[in-house]
Design a protein around this nucleic acid. Sequence first.
DNA 1: CTGTTAGCGCGTTCAA
DNA 2: TTGAACGCGCTAACAG
Lengths: 337, 337
Amino acid sequence: MSKVNLKTLAAELGVSVSTVSKALQNSYEISEETKQRVVTLAKQRNFRPNVYASSLRRQQTRTIAVIVPEIANNFFAFAINGIEEIAQENDYHVLIYLTHDSYEKEVSICEHLQSGRIDGVLMSVSTETNDYEHIAKLMDKGILLVFFDRVRHEIETAKVTTDDFVSGLNATEHLIEQGAKRIAYLSLSSKLSIDNKRKAGYMEALLKHNIEFDPNLVVACGNQQHEAYQRIKELLTSPNRTDAVFASVEKLATETYMVCQELGLKIPNDLKVICFSNTTIASLLNPSLSTVVQPAFEIGKQAANILFQHLERKNISILNENIILKSVLVARESTGC
Amino acid sequence: MSKVNLKTLAAELGVSVSTVSKALQNSYEISEETKQRVVTLAKQRNFRPNVYASSLRRQQTRTIAVIVPEIANNFFAFAINGIEEIAQENDYHVLIYLTHDSYEKEVSICEHLQSGRIDGVLMSVSTETNDYEHIAKLMDKGILLVFFDRVRHEIETAKVTTDDFVSGLNATEHLIEQGAKRIAYLSLSSKLSIDNKRKAGYMEALLKHNIEFDPNLVVACGNQQHEAYQRIKELLTSPNRTDAVFASVEKLATETYMVCQELGLKIPNDLKVICFSNTTIASLLNPSLSTVVQPAFEIGKQAANILFQHLERKNISILNENIILKSVLVARESTGC
DNA sequence: CTGTTAGCGCGTTCAA
DNA sequence: TTGAACGCGCTAACAG
């Protein structure tokens, strides 16, 4: 554990520090012979250049930060997976920060990141976040930023998201293709923008396939669990019963599943079900349940790619990409991811 | 985006660089008045000391690395959650690296980490990893290491794991408490050490409650899905039927669930089921399924705590803790975490 | 081809 | 109470 650096190597070899440095970078200025000697000794001493020293000198860290609300959530876990993969390919390092949806934490993290630790940030904002001065400050320091999933449109930079409208359309068409005629839409809250977009997709699909829209089939399930259960039960016991259900979030699919158990309905024979989900586990556990999964892995990869691309040629760094990906339909055999 | 550092601040205030540095560290050597002036300007200019420069100087990075096989897996996601939380509390930064269970990647990552980037590592080894020279090299460089979950016993350092034996015992007792008399154990592979430990716990529970052990109730399910399904079906259709099932891994619980569907058996009325799982989602989706969940969050926190504790007082750094945590039983109402 | 020199930005002596 | 000077370890411009 005796310390080894350019200086000690140079001393041991009887050459100058800069010769060692250049040799290790395989500079054309150095003779093959000395290169050999240097490289051999370096390997023997298990030498690695100190990255902090070289970062300081080169003014770039090859490190990025990922800021997400949480990680114990399949979506962000997969996104990070994608980010890390691209980072390794590009020889970048990834710092991870969780906000737990707290505005204070988000601010505090951004403060910390102004210390020259990183070259860029990939960020999914906390739902609590209303103002964005902390983000502006980051960018002021010349740190590149790419938003993914939960973005702030007020900030002009690259964004990678998914298309809830198209996803809602696809999900509904999937049910239609399986022969469904009376498709219900289980809504969580008409205040939620994603919910509305998904519903719009649902309605578009009905229109496209000449199925009359029946407002009674849109069920507002509210926030309380018992309420959702009740509403769904009412839906499934009403005289002119529905033959398929599109749950706007996974929780509502679970409730549907439980109602079916009580009523003795079999999925998918008696009722087809599809739901949005940020995990592929739902459909794995319950093979009869189709799910629409956000392409989290892909989102992470794309976001990271944009960032690294700009980092490598810093001059052209007007990040104005706005990528909207499609969700993926997962049925029984799919492996997801 | 004009650059701001000690030098520019000093110039603007008409004092020396070292005065600014000391003032910002609230040194007793500096008069209150100058401190005021310095701090005010620093805030105004939104100054943060460059961490790479100060790390270089102070010879510590306040950064750790977390190396895990994957992240799109609830266990590691929760563990990282715990680690990140403790890191934030201690004002440390967390770099994340995924091996995807590849030995080469693990080695390559460890190589990278010898460059003075970090003070310590939290690691869950890849299953492919057989030799551990790369890990030894890391430690040679004075980097502290704590293993969690997937450890290498050959290496003498702190380890945080869960107790599969006790967990298996608890799971079985849970079934017994619910009135089960003939409990089957679904085994994945008798070569798997965790499987064997869980089975040992199962047998211990039977012994403890004076239930005779019936070897016919231990079902080797093999690796192929169809095989598992078949074996479970045989089990559940045999004349002297079992009234409860302990699945050693989640996949086998899913298969059991499907067999029940085919046979028209209701869980938990006709059959009680408990399984090991690294996610709480299983039990959420299927409320009738009890699960034994590794306390991933807690494991992460404990591992991080040990590491930081040693990092703060580097002299006493003989990491010889060996913490074995218990798994947690999750029934319907529990929220997990 | 090799060495000398000058920083990157900061913290820490030691003098003044 | 302040400032000048040095060095953490490395890279890069410039001499030789």
